[in-house]
C-alpha cells in the first residue's frame, strides 16, 4: 500500500484518463441536452406519432442498464452494420459518447418536461394573447423559465453522467477507471490506486457543483409570490 509510489507512477496515466473522462462527459452531456430537449418537445407535442417515439425511447433507455446499452452500441450494432458495410468500425470513444448521450438524453427529456410543466399556464396564455405562435411562445417564454426550474435536477444528471463514464471502461474506453485497472494489473496497488481514482472523481464533481451553484445564482431573479389561485 505505497501511496507515494502510486502517486508518482500512476498519476500521469490517471490524468490522461481523466482528460478522456472529462472530454467524453462534456460532449455527451451537450448532445444529451439536445436529444433531451427534442425528445421532451416530442413527448409534449400534439402529434401522437412523435409522442409515441419519444415515449418508447425514454421507456427503453430508462428501463435497461447502461452497461448493456454500451455493449449493444459497441459490439452489437457494428455487427449488424458490417452485414452491409464490411469495413465499418466503431471505436470505443465514439461508441462511448453515443451510449452516454442517448442515456443522458432520456433522463434529461423527463427533467425538461418537469421544468416545462412547472411554468404557470398564465405565462403561455399571456404570450399567446400577444399573438406569439406556439413555437415562439415555447422558445421565448416557457423554455427559459423551465430551464431555471430544471437546474437542480440537471446538475444531478450531469453528475451522474460524469460518473457513468466509468461504465464505459467495460468497452475499452481509456478513461480514468480503465487506466487504473491497467495500472493495478501491473502494480497490485488496488487500495491506493482506487482511492486516487475516487479522489479524482470527487474533485471533478466538486468543480461541477461550484460552477452550477454560480450559474444558479446568476439566473436567480426576484419572483413575486402570486396571491390567489
Amino acid at each position: 500500500m505505497d501511496f507515494g509510489r502510486v502517486l508518482s507512477e500512476a498519476t500521469p496515466m490517471l490524468l490522461e484518463g481523466l482528460k478522456l473522462t472529462i472530454g467524453v462527459s462534456l460532449i455527451a452531456i451537450a448532445i444529451g441536452i439536445l436529444i433531451g430537449l427534442i425528445m421532451c418537445l416530442m413527448k409534449m407535442s400534439g402529434n401522437i406519432i412523435l409522442r409515441a417515439i419519444a415515449g418508447v425511447y425514454i421507456w427503453v433507455i430508462r428501463g435497461t442498464p447502461m452497461l448493456v446499452q454500451a455493449f449493444i452500441v459497441f459490439f452489437g450494432v457494428p455487427q449488424v452494420i458490417q452485414l452491409f458495410a464490411p469495413s465499418f468500425r466503431l471505436d470505443a470513444f465514439t461508441a462511448g459518447i453515443i451510449t452516454l448521450s442517448i442515456n443522458a438524453g432520456a433522463y434529461l427529456a423527463e427533467i425538461f418536461r418537469g421544468g416545462i410543466l412547472a411554468v404557470p399556464k398564465g405565462q403561455t396564455e399571456a404570450a399567446r394573447s400577444l399573438g406569439l405562435p406556439k413555437g415562439k411562445t415555447m422558445m421565448k417564454v416557457v423554455l427559459p423559465q423551465a430551464l431555471k426550474f430544471s437546474i437542480p435536477a440537471l446538475v444531478n444528471q450531469f453528475i451522474i453522467s460524469v460518473k457513468d463514464t466509468s461504465i464505459l471502461s467495460a468497452i475499452g474506453l481509456a478513461e480514468i477507471v480503465n487506466k487504473a485497472k491497467t495500472y493495478v494489473g501491473k502494480s497490485y496497488e488496488f487500495f491506493a490506486t482506487y482511492i486516487f481514482v475516487a479522489l479524482f472523481y470527487l474533485a471533478l464533481i466538486s468543480i461541477l457543483m461550484v460552477i452550477s451553484n454560480y450559474i444558479e445564482k446568476k439566473l436567480k431573479y426576484e419572483e413575486k409570490k402570486k396571491s390567489g389561485k
Partner: peptide, 20 residues
C-alpha cells in the same frame, strides 16, 4: 388566430408578466 390576436390586447387577473 395569431394575426387576429395581434390586434387584441389582453390583461389578466394574475398579471402574467414574464418574471425573467
Amino acid at each position: 388566430i395569431n394575426k387576429v390576436r395581434e390586434n387584441i390586447g389582453m390583461v389578466f387577473q394574475q398579471f402574467n408578466l414574464f418574471p425573467n
